[in-house]
């Protein structure tokens, strides 16, 4: 009897659940579809407003406007490289520290946690950081994309909290087998942490992929170190240049006023920048949506 009532309760729950999810889906997919439609709509027509899910006057001009810039290939390569390298190193280092800090028996646990967590709440400011980067001779190098942000406290604590949720007995049994801490980390913790590592990888990758400010600050003089987002931001700044500030407006220089509307370019840039993420996403997604079978690891 009990089983039956749970069952009908469950069906009801499912109906509500699917209805809820579909409505959430409609609401959250809208902004992106809207951007997509605008990116394919003629710029001058977009000014009139009223574009929702489908372009009114179809055009590829908003994309052509982006792809006339010839250094996009170099920029794309650099962005891919920094994303791949930055993600691998970032995930690895965060996981390592997280494991150490998850060990309740570790004698420096509290102190080291403290050193890391504080960094989330202060910053020396842009000027001293700039001077540091300069003094370390990282200006105009690729490494400025990887090294300064390599160790991130937030990632460490997210991974640590995940490890905290794992059954400790796994580690203990390994210890009895005589494995040292390094081996436990590689053989047991890393495989078990796949879902959270995939999540952190996603966060780092998106962060790396989207960042442009470091290129602007440190590498804007090196054409071969430019990144995709920086180039896209430049294109966007280009189109908004004519109307980007009151000062600018006063100069009233017709050469600088816009030819394509900023809204349209912003839309096509959003799509160009997001597409690679969407392509890669399913490979990471499977780790945290499907879950993993602990049994496989245990044996």
């Amino acid at each position: 009897m009990a089983a039956k009532s749970t069952n009908s309760e469950s069906v009801l729950f499912d109906i509500f659940l699917y209805a809820f999810m579909i409505s959430v889906g409609i609401v959250t997919v809208y902004p992106f579809l809207n951007v997509l439609a605008i990116s394919f709509n003629q710029a001058m027509d977009t000014v009139r407003g009223g574009i929702y899910l489908w372009p009114r006057i179809f055009t590829l001009d908003n994309y052509k406007e982006i792809f006339i810039y010839n250094n996009l290939i170099v920029a794309f390569k650099n962005s891919v490289l920094r994303t791949v390298l930055g993600t691998l190193l970032g995930v690895f280092s965060a996981a390592m520290v997280a494991y150490v800090l998850s060990r309740k028996d570790f004698i420096a646990r509290k102190q080291i946690s403290f050193v890391f967590v504080l960094t989330l709440y202060f910053s020396g400011g842009i000027i001293p950081v700039y001077m540091l980067i300069r003094d370390l001779h990282l200006m105009n190098t690729f490494w400025v994309y990887i090294l300064p942000g390599l160790v991130n406290a937030w990632n460490i604590f997210v991974i640590r909290s995940y490890i905290d949720g794992l059954p400790i007995s796994l580690q203990e049994s390994a210890k009895i087998d005589g494995a040292n801490d390094l081996a436990i980390f590689f053989r047991i913790i890393l495989p078990l942490c796949k879902p959270v590592l995939a999540t952190i990888a996603l966060f780092i990758a998106v962060g790396q992929w989207n960042s442009w400010f470091d290129t602007f600050l440190y590498n804007s003089n090196s054409d071969d170190l430019t990144t995709l987002q920086y180039e896209l931001m430049k294109i966007l700044a280009n189109t908004t240049a004519g109307a980007s500030s009151a000062d600018m407006a006063r100069s009233g220089n017709p050469e600088l006023t816009t030819r394509v509307s900023p809204e349209s370019i912003r839309a096509s840039i959003t799509i160009v920048a997001t597409l690679p993420i969407l392509v890669v996403y399913p490979f990471l997604q499977k780790y945290f949506v499907q879950g993993l079978t602990l049994g496989a690891v245990k044996s």
């Binding site: 420096a108 001293p128 540091l132």
Partner: peptide, 18 residues
């Protein structure tokens, strides 16, 4: 496994506090 990263974060996050 942790001290190198501590040094790392001291360089990039603590030194600029000057």
């Amino acid at each position: 496994m942790s001290v190198p990263f501590v040094i790392w974060i001291i360089i990039f996050n603590y030194i600029p506090v000057w």
